[in-house]
Computed example of a mutant assay.
Amino acid sequence: MMKTIEYYFSPKSPWTYLGHERMLELARRHGAIVEPRPMDLARVFPLSGGLPLDKRPPQRQAYRLTELKRWSQHLGMPLIVQPRFFPVDETDASKMIASVAKAGDNDGALKLSGAMLRAVWAEERNIADAATLIQIADDCGLDGAALHAGREAGADLYEHHTDEAIRLQVFGAPWYVYRGEPYWGQDRLEFLERALAGD
């Protein structure tokens, strides 16, 4: 049976950024396919009682920064804990990713996802800006202008992934599903790898 990881995420999530390449690497090691499923966290969060960052109590906001620094250092990954362009509207970025996946280019969609994440958290770029999105896609070997102009082609898939995430009771990002079992957060990748290895 084919090993498939269903990958629910937002291209503006720092935790998704911290786990993205590690998740792809463990999938490669275990011969698994990763299906990128960008979702609208603004719709997903409230259903579980989650709050946008600016609505969280100050002690939670402060600890989030501590954890981001800690994980960045632990993984040896560059991360700007308070980037200039965050919070940011990720809608167009997500639709572009969904458009690439819908066209059958799974690897291209995953590459673009990683580039969007790096743009926010390592490069301090604005993924709500059209020119930036086009350049990021071009750098991934895609036709950025055409992809951005036709991004609404991915709107239905983006909405479908969000609806599916809600049905599956997803409440954060990244969220991995393997053999019907959920794993929330990049700090659960070890458990996901154990499940893959067990098969």
Rank of each mutant, 00 (worst) to 15 (best):
F191S: 03
G141C: 05
I80P: 01
P11A: 07
A93I: 04
W184Q: 05
D107L: 13
H161R: 03
R167K: 07
G180R: 14
I134G: 03
A42K: 03
L168H: 07
E152F: 09
E25P: 05
P52G: 10
G144S: 12
L75S: 06
D163C: 02
G104Y: 12
F86T: 05
G31I: 10
D138R: 09
C140T: 09
K111A: 04
E164R: 10
R22A: 09
A98N: 06
L75G: 13
A145D: 06
M1Y: 11
L196S: 12
A119Y: 06
A42G: 11
R84E: 11
P36L: 04
L110R: 04
R28L: 12
A27H: 00
L65F: 15
P83H: 08
G19S: 03
R194M: 04
T91Y: 09
R28N: 11
R60P: 09
Q186V: 06
A128H: 15
E164F: 09
G180L: 14
L41K: 02
M39V: 08
G172V: 11
A131S: 13
P78V: 09
D54H: 14
D89Y: 15
A98C: 15
Q169Y: 05
Q59N: 15
G49C: 05
I127V: 12
H30Y: 14
R70A: 10
E6G: 00
V170I: 11
D129Y: 10
G108N: 04
P58A: 15
Q73P: 14
L147F: 02
E164Q: 08
Q169L: 13
D92N: 11
R151P: 01
Y7P: 01
W184E: 11
V177R: 02
L142S: 00
C140Q: 13
P36T: 09
T4G: 10
L65V: 12
R125L: 13
K111Y: 08
L79Q: 07
R29A: 13
P78I: 07
I166R: 01
M1T: 14
E67Q: 15
Q169K: 14
A131N: 11
E181C: 13
C140P: 03
L189T: 01
A130I: 06
R118M: 05
E124C: 12
N106S: 12
A130P: 03
L192Q: 01
E193K: 03
G104D: 10
T132A: 08
G185I: 01
L117R: 00
E164L: 13
T16K: 02
N126I: 06
P87G: 01
D156K: 07
R28W: 08
R43F: 13
G76R: 12
W175E: 08
L168I: 04
D143G: 13
A98I: 04
L51P: 05
R56F: 07
A109V: 06
Y178P: 02
E6T: 06
L196N: 11
G172R: 01
W175L: 08
G141F: 04
Y8W: 07
V44S: 02
G76Q: 15
D129M: 12
L192I: 03
L168K: 09
V81A: 10
T66P: 06
R84A: 10
K3R: 15
L142V: 02
R194H: 13
R84Y: 02
G31A: 11
A101N: 07
W175F: 12
A130Y: 04
S113W: 08
G154N: 03
R56A: 02
G76E: 13
A109L: 04
